[in-house]
Design a protein around this nucleic acid. Structure first.
Lengths: 100, 100
DNA sequence: CAAACATATCGACAATTATCGAATTGTGCA
DNA sequence: TGCACAATTCGATAATTGTCGATATGTTTG
């Protein structure tokens, strides 16, 4: 777990929000037209709509977050869904609490 | 407590280190020639020596950290000592754990 | 296979951060 | 009072990040 990298990722309001939104997808996003559940999180489009930034920016943010292992992508057909990586998030907050 | 601001501050290796070093000043810094204790932390010079960056950079870092309320300055004569603000650090890690 | 659509990547440029040396300010002491 | 020293602030420049539109890639379906 790269603490500096994670802190960088989380020092941007939008990215922090995305992580929070994904904590309760059903409260923050419409149900996906095809997929009827949130098992694998939310597709890029919906996240982008909610964040109000360009598609490329959101895609870029998501890939940073994925690189830091904070989220996990799953492909369903032409959509990519992203969900939180609870294990890493937990480890991160615990590590901060213990090491800081 | 400004979470984004704190995350920014802590997304730099040196600043993160400073916060950690200050957790155990006696283990990380020489005792100050005049002051015989670490009650109020460590003076800017010693921190700079340990970090190996220019004096102005360290001063700047410390002021960012102070602005984010992570550290508290105390002036003793011509020296400024910095110590951790345990209350804010604690609140920060707790907040992250709860909100993330 | 070609069109349509979701996402990712590329290339650019503006904004922010990292970092330095020089100049300034604050403090103690000869 | 004025020199010595600690720290802060200033001004500059290099490096990184934010953000976009355009282009490319992957996938479904007619």
């Amino acid at each position: 777990m790269e603490i500096i990298e994670i802190n960088k990722v989380l020092s941007n309001e939008t990215r922090l929000n995305i992580l929070r939104w994904l904590k309760h997808p059903e409260a923050n996003f419409p149900a996906h037209k095809d997929l009827g559940h949130f098992e694998d999180g939310v597709c890029v489009q919906y996240i982008g709509d909610k964040a109000g930034l360009s598609q490329s920016t959101i895609s870029h943010y998501l890939s940073m977050m994925q690189k830091a292992k904070l989220i996990i992508p799953t492909r369903h057909g032409k959509w990519t869904y992203y969900k939180r990586n609870e294990k890493v998030i937990k480890a991160y907050t615990k590590y901060l609490k213990d090491s800081l």
